Amino acid sequence: MSLFAFLIVGALAGWLAGQFVKGAGFGLIGNIVIGIVGSFVGGFTFQLLGLYSGSFLGSLVTATVGAIILLYVVRLARS
């Protein structure tokens, strides 16, 4: 995946995760960081479940699910 596509997926995944978990985004840089870290979390989680998708949409779903998991864990840690 190219760097530009990786950043786009990260930004979209971070924004989507922010909509699901918090109700608002975290700014462009925050969304990208959350989405990129979420892509690693989602990739690891999906690998444990035996799931894989190499398409752009599959990468977006994987990163979004990982970012949601990440935000949920961060929220639990703060409480």
Rank of each mutant, 00 (worst) to 15 (best):
F26K: 06
V33S: 04
I36E: 15
S2L: 12
G66M: 02
L76R: 13
L3V: 13
L70T: 05
G23M: 05
S79W: 15
A77T: 10
L49K: 01
L60H: 04
N31F: 04
L3M: 12
T45N: 10
I68K: 09
V37N: 01
L7Q: 04
F46D: 08
L48S: 08
F56T: 07
L48F: 11
G14N: 03
V73P: 06
L16A: 13
V61S: 02
L7D: 06
L7V: 05
A17H: 06
L12F: 06
L76I: 13
A63M: 02
G25H: 04
Q47R: 13
F46R: 14
V61D: 01
G42L: 03
S2E: 12
Q19W: 13
L51H: 10
G25L: 10
K22L: 14
M1C: 08
G54N: 10
V41F: 03
T64M: 01
I69V: 14
G50E: 00
L70V: 08
I32R: 08
V65F: 01
F6E: 07
G43P: 00
G10K: 02
G54C: 08
L7S: 13
W15I: 12
T62C: 01
F20R: 14
M1L: 14
S55F: 02
T45V: 11
L49S: 09
L51N: 07
F44A: 05
L70E: 11
I32C: 11
L16N: 05
L51W: 15
I68H: 05
F44M: 08
M1S: 13
S39W: 12
F4V: 15
